[in-house]
Nucleic acid binder design. Structure first.
Lengths: 152, 152
DNA sequence: CTGATTAGTTAGCAC
DNA sequence: GTGCTAACTAATCAG
C-alpha cells in the first residue's frame, strides 16, 4: 500500500482509443522486483498471448511472477471487455435514437399524407353531393332532400 | 499491500439498493489501527455528515486518521454519484424505448386511418365519375369521353 | 468542495 | 478459462 511504483510501460500502452478527457495515470502498484520483470513484456503482447503461450513463457520464471503475469493478463483483457461493453451500450442508444427519428419522420409524413387524402375525399364527396343534388333538382324539386341522405 | 484487513462494517453498510447480482465483498484494505477506529463511525453516518461536522469530529483524532476518514467519505459519496449516474442512463434508455413504442403505435394507427380515408376517397371519386358519366350519357352519347376528363 | 461522468478494476455469472 | 456486465474506485471536469 505504501509502494508507489507504477508499471513503466503502462502509460504508453494503456489507451485503446483516444482518451481526450482522462489523463491516463496508472494506479496499480506492485513490488519493485515485478516492475523490472514486467517491463520485459509489454501489456499489448501479454494481452494477445494465448494461455498456452503464456504457460510456455512462465515455465522459466518463479511461481509468484507467473501468477502476477496471469493476473495482469486478466486485468488487461477485462479492460478491453469493459470498453467493448460500453461501446455496445452507446451504440444501442444511438440506434434507438436513429430509429426514433425515422419513426418521427414517418409519422409526420403519414399525417401530411392523411391530410391530403382527407381533403381529396371531402372534395370528391362535396362534388358528388353537388352533382347529385343538381341532377335531382333539375328533374324534381322534392328530391333535393333525399340527395343528401344518399350522398354517403 | 500485504495487509488484508477489511472494513468491519462495510458489508452490512454498503449496498444502497438491492444488489442481487454482486455479492458485496469489501476490497479496500487499511491498517489495523484504522479498522478499529473506523468501526466506531458507520459508512452511512460518515457519508451524510457535512464537512463541518466531520471537521468537528476529526479535531480530536490524529492527522492520518482524519485524512483516511475524509478519503472514505469521498469514496462513499462517489459511490452514490455513480449509482445515480447509472440509474439516470438506464432511465434514459427506458424512456427512449417507450417513446419508440408509442411512435410505432401512432404510425400504425395513422397508416390504418390513411387506408380507410383512401378507400373512402376512391369510393366517392368513382361514385362521382359514374354519376357524371351517367348524366351526360343520358343527354348525349358524345359526352361520356369528356366526363372522365372532368372527373378530377 | 460537491456532483457528475468517464475509464479502469473487481466480482460474479454464464458458457 | 473467456467474455460480459453491474458495481465500485479513481481521475477529471464543471460549477
Amino acid at each position: 500500500m505504501g509502494d508507489d511504483v507504477k508499471y513503466k510501460d503502462a502509460k504508453s500502452d494503456l489507451p485503446y482509443g483516444s482518451n481526450a478527457k482522462r489523463k491516463v495515470v496508472p494506479r496499480r502498484s506492485c513490488k519493485k522486483e515485478d516492475k523490472v520483470f514486467f517491463s520485459t513484456l509489454s501489456d499489448k503482447k501479454l494481452e494477445k498471448m494465448t494461455i498456452k503461450e503464456l504457460n510456455d513463457y512462465t515455465r522459466e520464471i518463479s511461481k509468484h511472477q507467473a501468477q502476477e503475469l496471469k493476473k495482469r493478463r486478466r486485468i488487461l483483457k477485462n479492460r478491453r471487455y469493459a470498453l467493448k461493453c460500453r461501446v455496445k451500450s452507446i451504440q444501442k442508444s444511438v440506434n434507438m435514437k436513429e430509429e426514433n427519428l425515422s419513426l418521427e419522420k414517418g409519422l409526420s409524413a403519414a399525417k401530411r399524407e392523411l391530410k391530403t387524402i382527407l381533403s381529396e375525399r371531402d372534395n370528391y364527396k362535396s362534388k358528388y353531393v353537388q352533382l347529385y343534388n343538381h341532377v335531382f333538382e333539375t328533374f324534381s324539386a322534392s328530391t333535393a332532400i333525399r340527395a343528401s341522405k344518399l350522398a354517403d
